[in-house]
């Protein structure tokens, strides 16, 4: 028998075979822990997981807490119920992962992807989310320099902000590779970027030194937790909304502490 025929038969078998409640529950718990970890909103998480569960002939109830998800899967008859708790994966924000996981839920629902195939796809997706760190570094540097212009900075200020961002973001990449706590990372990067951002003030470059120092740390602003927390409020996931908001507040406080320390070191006045 040809290998391709074997694959087709295997897939047909996979489609016709109904997965057990336990299998679906464990799959959904893993799926959800990745999706929440990469920065998806709670409503997206619930909708995607419901969609997958319904396709495999199950009902699902979900509790989302800040660091865990609690999944219960029920048979349509209600005779078989399985519950599991999974820790949220610490992947960092990734809309690429979010997009691929959302697409997987539609593939399961629309293309009736078999259970075994869906499990393999999930494994592939979670392994394939990589980026070229040098390209990201370059794009972030250009982005923050552009920010400086948008806030009224002149050319010397843009150049200084570019350099401050390059150094700060590179430090962020290095520290995160060494698994340093994100709060320490934000504090250290804000300090380094603000010290370098104060160059305009120190060497009297250009006419907008305050804009340079103010924008040099903007690449660290935790925008996604702020936006997601409001989305969670709209759909009444208040616990998660509060948790995401607090995360964002703590990171903003670390950012501010780094900035103030940098300014104090460089003896930069503000008003």
């Amino acid at each position: 028998m040809m290998a391709s025929e074997c694959k087709v038969m295997e897939r047909q078998h996979d489609i016709t075979q109904v997965p057990s409640g336990k299998e679906v529950c464990l799959f959904l718990a893993e799926y959800g822990s990745w999706l929440l970890g990469c920065g998806a909103t709670c409503i997206r998480l619930e909708k995607n997981m419901q969609r997958i569960a319904a396709t495999y002939g199950k009902r699902m109830e979900l509790t989302i807490s800040p660091r865990h998800i609690h999944v219960s899967v029920l048979d349509d008859s209600g005779s078989d119920t399985v519950t599991t708790i999974a820790s949220v994966k610490a992947t960092g924000v990734s809309f690429n992962l979010n997009t691929m996981l959302s697409q997987l839920s539609w593939e399961v629902a629309d293309r009736k992807l078999g259970f075994r195939e869906a499990r393999e796809r999930l494994r592939e997706i979670t392994r394939s989310d990589s980026q070229n760190k040098w390209v990201v570094l370059l794009l972030v540097t250009l982005a923050n320099a552009s920010f400086c212009h948008l806030f009224g900075g002149d050319l010397p200020a843009m150049a200084v902000v570019g350099a401050a961002t390059l150094a700060g973001y590179y430090l962020k990449q290095l520290l995160l590779e060494h698994r340093v706590d994100i709060r320490v990372v934000v504090l250290a990067c804000a300090f380094v970027s603000s010290v370098l951002g104060a160059s305009c003030h120190l060497f009297s470059l250009g006419t907008t030194p305050a804009v340079a120092i103010g924008t040099s740390i903007l690449y660290l602003v935790p925008g996604i937790p702020f936006l997601n927390s409001f989305s969670d409020v709209l759909y009444r996931y208040y616990i998660c909304a509060f948790s995401r908001f607090m995360d964002a507040v703590v990171l903003t406080a670390c950012l501010s502490a780094g900035l103030c320390a940098g300014m104090a070191l460089m003896r930069v006045g503000m008003f």
């Binding site: 924000v93 982005a143 920010f147 948008l150």
Partner: peptide, 24 residues
Amino acid sequence: ILDALFSAIAAIGFSAISRLPRRA
């Protein structure tokens, strides 16, 4: 035009930070 141009560059940089698919 300058405002639009620099906003577009900033958005591309922040797309990279938040790991958006390149097609977006």
